[in-house]
Design a protein around this nucleic acid. Structure first.
Lengths: 146, 146
DNA sequence: TAAATTTAGGACCTTAAATATCTTGTATGC
DNA sequence: GCATACAAGATATTTAAGGTCCTAAATTTA
């Protein structure tokens, strides 16, 4: 019943890139260090974000990640679901078999409705909103860049 | 990001008891069979429901479970949280350390808000509402009671 | 073009939690 | 007292999360 660490890391990574600015190349090392994400684990997460089209990964020396989209065009739901798959509060498919019609059944339609509500809420949260001042994710000063 | 099986089983058990009627003794065997819950696992779940004051467990021959409260006085949230603990979408406590103030931070306050919304929704769903006709959980006919 | 840097991607490992099951003990009814 | 039915702790089994490791590949730079 929790957002996973991987999803939390993905969000931190995206917020970091947003704060650095769309199109700005940022090394994995810097993000991992500043956002406190295990570097190798971040690599895995970034690959999924890249496959989903949110960032571009540049290999080689001076490589790193680049934000592709406008912050206001990205929302929490799509980032989270890129990492953990479609959010669903419903019981597993094995349990759905028990219920002949989860959409009609008053017991099980609750989860369908609550899931929709949650997904709508997260969809409404765009990255321009959560990346402004006050965020716990602060960027490394460009000058002190190693 | 799912309700656990244990929680789903607890809900089925309560719905079954509600449909049988407050104060009606129902054997664990019957509930386990009709609601498709592993009997021993149901025992564990029932113990927690009993400790929380929702049902009474009668030991010995002709033992079983009895619903204590009025269906309209019980809601999904309290049953679910009895089994899986307080619902929270927030990241683990280890991750909260990263954020100095999850209530102020725009990144992390999202989870707090979404969690409140979800809990409110579940709190509004009382057992009299979900136990009416149309539910996938049907009770054994009293006459054919073995 | 060789070396250094940096990410890619698959294999593997560790831990924790969920999901039970087993066994022995205890309470109740007949 | 014996059968029945739940209690409760110990013990698997399975699954997923959360990482780590290692070799390869891409890119920059000397």
């Amino acid at each position: 019943m929790k957002i996973t660490r991987a999803a939390e890391y993905a969000i931190r990574c995206m917020v970091y890139l947003v704060r650095k600015g769309k199109g700005t190349l940022v090394s994995r090392r810097e993000i991992a260090h500043q956002a406190e994400i295990p570097a190798q684990f971040l690599a895995k997460i970034a690959q999924e974000l890249a496959r989903a089209g949110f960032i571009e990964i540049r290999q080689g020396a001076k490589g790193g990640f680049v934000l592709i989209n406008e912050p206001k065009e990205m929302n929490l739901l799509e980032i989270v679901e890129t990492i953990i798959g479609e959010i669903s509060l419903n019981e597993s498919s094995a349990l759905l078999d028990f219920c002949s019609d989860p959409n009609q059944c008053p017991v099980h339609s609750v989860w369908t409705d609550a899931t929709s509500q949650l997904r709508d809420t997260l969809q409404g949260v765009t990255f321009d909103k959560i990346s402004k001042k006050g965020s716990c994710i602060s960027i490394e000063k460009p000058k002190s860049d190693k």
